[in-house]
Design a protein around this nucleic acid. Structure first.
Lengths: 190, 190
DNA sequence: GTCTATACATGGATAGAC
DNA sequence: GTCTATCCATGTATAGAC
């Protein structure tokens, strides 16, 4: 996985993998039938985490915004905890059959996100001046872009990062304006 | 460029490029000395546009937030108009000397963004509860992630897209709360 | 500018001994 | 489970004719 991440799947030759493992190319083929099988295994692992998150967000008993926020938040933590696997998944281009199947499964996740955004807008919880499909893509573009720069320490669950993503995407970067429910209300001392 | 975008630089063989061009591999070498030279040319073109934007944002006579917004906005339009080139740049992993130089130059841009964010926070225009370096990376992660899904029609300048990015990142997705300068002010009829 | 032919290295993968 | 040796396709790149 380290070699795949550093060089990219295509540029990571079996020779290079073997060197890093301290064995020969042919020894690898005792454990796995092909290079592509190695890729399939890794992609499977990435999907596992992401689909678990999607399932949980979907089954949550809460308004669409809340489910969407949960989906975004937990996607970040899964991404952080399975960084090499998710990175590989996100870099797949569809050159082979294995890659195309992975892309299809990713689209299912995109679809769920788009549904939640649409519903949240209908609820009046998200601004209606942006296209729902575009919002969904911007949101997950933001999440997915983390693989390009975030380098977690061992033990990092990505919790603060997930909160930062939620804050920027939902509340924006400009200084906090009063929340709707607090607007113009006098400050009540505790 | 189309082949590079579809298959990735590494997987795009000279044979494949030649087929698409309708000539033979060797004919390509009459125009360019190596495959890597082809990459260098493309990366150069991507940098041109991005650095021009950075220079303009830097030299703007306005508060840091405004310069930052301009940088983000124009980065989106450059990305849209030079999509294949910027896509290639963003997928470079540093496997060769040419790629490493490209990564270094990209870091200069990241640095400028981080400076603007820091300054804007100091000005009190951006929320101070998020790490400036993190904000800069989230912002440009968001911008860069566009190459993964945005497919402009010919003639598309990316203007509405750039506005959407600015809106989401700076104002957030939740329904517009009153702007600070309008807070609690009675609505004035025109 | 383009072609055919070819050089030479490296790619993924297999055979068979230990 | 790992090795050496090897197969064959493909990779980048060059030589030299047209």
């Amino acid at each position: 996985m380290a070699v795949f991440t550093e060089r990219g799947y295509d540029s990571a030759s079996m020779e290079l993998l073997a060197n890093r493992l301290g064995i020969t190319k042919s020894a690898i083929y005792h454990h796995v039938t092909s290079k592509e099988a190695l890729l399939a295994l890794a992609l499977e692992r990435a999907h596992e985490g992401l689909f678990a998150v999607a399932e949980e967000a979907r089954s949550l008993d809460a308004p669409a915004v809340a489910r969407l926020k949960r989906l975004v938040h937990d996607s970040v933590t899964v991404l952080v905890r399975n960084l090499p696997y998710v990175t590989l998944l996100l870099r797949v281009r569809g050159n082979t059959e294995v890659e195309r199947r992975a892309l299809e499964r990713r689209r299912e996740l995109d679809h769920l996100a788009a549904e939640l955004v649409t519903e949240a807008i209908a609820d009046g919880d998200l601004r209606s001046d942006l296209d729902p499909a575009m919002v969904a893509r911007l949101l997950f573009g933001l999440v997915n872009s983390l693989v390009e720069w975030y380098r977690p320490e061992p033990g990092d669950t990505g919790e603060p990062l997930a909160d930062a993503v939620i804050t920027m995407a939902f509340d924006g970067l400009v200084v906090a304006s009063p929340q709707p429910d607090a607007t113009c209300a006098p400050i009540t001392p505790p």
